[in-house]
Each structure stands twice: as C-alpha cells, then as structure tokens.
Design a protein around this nucleic acid. Sequence first.
DNA 1: GTAGGTGCAAAATTTTTGCATCCAA
DNA 2: TTGGATGCAAAAATTTTGCACCTAC
Lengths: 130, 130
Amino acid sequence: MAKKTRMTKQRKAILKILKNTKIHPTADWIYEKVRAEIPNISLGTVYRNLNVLAESGKIKVLDYGSNHSRYDGNPEQHYHFRCEKCGRVYDLELDFGLNLNKKINSETGFIANSHRLEFHGICPECQQKN
Amino acid sequence: MAKKTRMTKQRKAILKILKNTKIHPTADWIYEKVRAEIPNISLGTVYRNLNVLAESGKIKVLDYGSNHSRYDGNPEQHYHFRCEKCGRVYDLELDFGLNLNKKINSETGFIANSHRLEFHGICPECQQKN
DNA sequence: GTAGGTGCAAAATTTTTGCATCCAA
DNA sequence: TTGGATGCAAAAATTTTGCACCTAC
C-alpha cells in the first residue's frame, strides 16, 4: 500500500503555487515563489515535495521519464509510445490522418507548426512477461 | 544565414548511431556507443554535436525546451501548446473528442493508458509583437 | 510518541565551456 | 589556408541525499 504522507505547510504551499499558475514552472521558479511565504525553505525540500506530489498523482512532471535529454534520429513527424514498465520509447508507425495543427489554427488563436503525441502504457514485450 | 558546419567523422558517427537505433537514447548512451568506433572521443564533443544536429533539424531532442524538469499542477488530461518564441507552455482547453488510446489498443499490440499531446508554434501574444 | 518531513550542506549527475590544437572544405 | 571542430578538464547547472533536528498526526 501507499506510504503515509503528511500535509506539511511546505508541501501545502508548493501545491498551492502549482495549482495557481499556468506556466508549468521549473523547480527553481517554485523555490523562488515559495520563499515569499516560507523564507527559509530549502531547495531540497522543494524537490522532495515535487517528487512526492508527482508520485501521488497530484501533479504531473513534464519530462521523458528520466532526468536526461533523449535524442531522436528521426526528425520526421511520428508518434511515440513509452512503456511504463521497461521505460523504452518506441516509434509508432500509425498515421491517424489527423490534421491536428490545422484544427488548432482554425479553432484557437494559436498558430501550430507541429505537434508531438506520445502514448504511455505497456509494450507487447512486457505484456508477455506478466 | 545558417552557420557553416563540417561533417567530421565524430559528427558522422553520432548521426549514424542515432539513425540506426529506435530507442531514443541519452547522450551518455550515445557516448558509450560511439567510443567503440572513436575511442578517444570526448563527452563534450557528443553534446556539442547533438546540439548542432538538433539545430540543423537532422535530429530531434525530446525535452520540454529546457534542461529543467517542468511541473504541472493539473494532473487531468489536457493538452499543451509551447510557444517557440517566448517559451511559455499554455494549457489548451480544447477537447478533440478523440479516443486515441482506444485507437492504439485496437490497431496495435501496445496497451495505452494515457497520452500526451503538445503543439508547437506561436502564441497569440507573440503574434502581435511581430 | 513517532514516523515522516525539514534545513543545511555535501555529493552526484548532467551539460556546457575555455583553450590549445587539429583537420575538413 | 583557416574557421569550424575536437579533446581535455574545469566549471556550471540541476537534482539527490545523509544527518540531526523538528512536527503533523
């Protein structure tokens, strides 16, 4: 079962800041913000709480499943599938025939030049290993 | 105009490795691989070349436009738009009514639990500043 | 009361950079 | 020939962690 957690004032403050911004900030930005409220909070605490909050599903981390950048030798439009078990990232050959960029351009004020679509789940190989 | 670049053996080897793998490796993985061919290549050269190759569009970097992790206070399904000019990441309220996960599950051997969709382009504010 | 959390600082990791030298065009 | 590229090492930047003390439950 999941480990017990406490809602400390530090954790509460970090969560509140994150819920009240749209800018998807970095840990350091959050650290600066939260220091207005808790001046002697440490950056380590910010990182620890972000990890705890992400594990419990209260927030999302926008990375690629690791702290490293990952590089893709195929610059063409294609979609990815990341296996939640083994961590591998597959290319998907599927083309849904979606013209998502055009949809954005016609339905919003944004001008989209490209998009990235990534699925998360279990790959065929890990399904067998079950 | 774009700066001139040379196709050194180091750059060629890195590009070849990246074109011949599907795993979207980290810089360190590439470094280990390329050392089989060029034993005294340095990690700095690998990073420099990955950046050059990405700038010229020959490869893609799978990150969020910075070297930091970014955190999202909204764990619900929603899409993102990243502005290529100011770097901001917006939430898109749009729902295309796509059931992409189901499509994956029925058309491939992958089991998708979730997906992430992110558009890149120019935000309304930066369009005005033109 | 106590297990989980914090602050601090040191360490680990990842990425960039200065510089003398080298080499692709 | 020469300006871009490399190797090396040091530095910068980001994230994690050990430890003694603190506090939410």
